[in-house]
């Protein structure tokens, strides 16, 4: 482990990353609060999509449970925000996310393919109803108020730190035995089992790691809304947005999701600002254009130009398929 950390091909990217993040930390002094809110949106989706890809990229399990962990984080802040100091609240949120992820992971990661997708989608509804039931019957108060003196800039810095930690974790993971095991599982689970890898344990470990980052994002974002209820905290749209962004960018590389997050967040912004009455139609048209022009995601485009002889036949094939369809 120490060996691989000291190699120059590890130090160089990490150093470069540190410089970029240090520069980004000065953004609040350069732009007004509108651009800060846009930056928060980009960084929060970047964390969510990267965390999602960390698990779903190598294992190819499509999870629609992003908002479950995000919402748990937000609720932890709503419940504990005024009782404990904020860093402690974040630790509690991470613990809550870990526990839920362990529970869900051990009980469901033996499911494969479409069953897992359906389960994670159902999980959103389940958690939302359980929280509603608890609020209605136990606390007898449905909405919760979050009055914390956390400014927009604080939220930005926290998210930025979280993203830096996430990228570093992902980077180390990609070079570790665990990451290698994951790639084997992604290629062929049976082979992985035969290599002596405890497949379930590896998958659960990754699922928990990715869930902790999602939970923390929810916890950091919650003070921005002042008021949350189960419908606001567990909005399934968020899960879909994260999947779309990660898939557009390319979930199998560490920086792939970021390439989906930035253009899509900006696109949402442009559409919302300029076509308030036609947002959904414009969004649909844009997605169709993306699917036709970039079937392999942004990373796919990059890889196509890097190895043209390999990518072009599959591209040609998909085109003929579309024509016959």
């Amino acid at each position: 482990m120490i060996n691989c950390i000291l190699k120059p091909d590890f130090i160089k990217p990490v150093f470069l990353g540190a410089v970029i993040f240090a520069a980004l930390a000065f953004l609040p002094s350069l732009v007004d609060s509108y651009y800060m809110s846009l930056a928060i949106s980009i960084v929060s989706f970047a964390v969510l999509a990267t965390a999602w890809s960390m698990f779903s990229g190598p294992t190819r399990y499509i999870s629609l449970a992003t908002v479950v962990f995000f919402g748990i984080g937000a609720y932890t802040v709503a419940v504990l925000g005024e009782v404990l100091p904020f860093p402690v609240v974040l630790v509690c949120a991470a613990l809550a996310g870990t526990m839920l992820a362990l529970l869900v992971g051990f009980s469901t990661l033996r499911l494969a393919g479409v069953y897992f997708v359906i389960f994670t989608f159902g999980l959103t509804e389940l958690v939302r109803q359980v929280v509603s039931w608890y609020e209605v019957n136990v606390t007898r108060e449905m909405g919760r108020y979050i009055f914390l003196d956390i400014t927009q800039n604080d939220i930005y810095w926290q998210l930025l730190t979280l993203f830096a930690v996430l990228l570093l974790t992902g980077f180390i993971l990609g070079r570790s035995r665990l990451g290698f095991a994951l790639r084997i599982i992604g290629e062929d689970e049976t082979v992985a089992r035969h290599c002596g890898i405890n497949v379930t344990r590896v998958k659960v470990a990754l699922f928990v790691l990715s869930a902790v980052f999602m939970t923390l994002t929810g916890a950091i974002m919650a003070p921005r809304w002042t008021y949350i209820d189960p419908v606001i905290a567990f909005n399934p749209m968020l899960s879909f947005q994260v999947v779309i962004m990660a898939l557009l960018g390319g979930p199998r590389r560490l920086l792939g999701p970021l390439l989906g997050v930035i253009p899509l967040t900006l696109l949402f912004e442009v559409l919302t600002a300029n076509f308030p009455n036609h947002f959904s139609i414009m969004l649909g048209v844009t997605f169709m254009v993306i699917v036709y022009l970039l079937p392999g995601g942004v990373i796919g485009l990059y890889e196509k130009y890097r190895t043209p002889q390999k990518a072009s036949p599959s591209n040609g094939h998909s085109k003929t398929e579309e024509k016959t369809a």
Binding site: S37, W225, N235, T272, P276
Partner: peptide, 22 residues
């Protein structure tokens, strides 16, 4: 100047920031 917040708190926050600053 009107925007659609799509019934989301986050969108409403962003839209109001846009109205104020942009």
């Amino acid at each position: 100047v009107e925007y659609d917040d799509r019934s989301s708190s986050e969108e409403a926050v962003r839209a109001v920031e846009r109205l104020i600053n942009q």
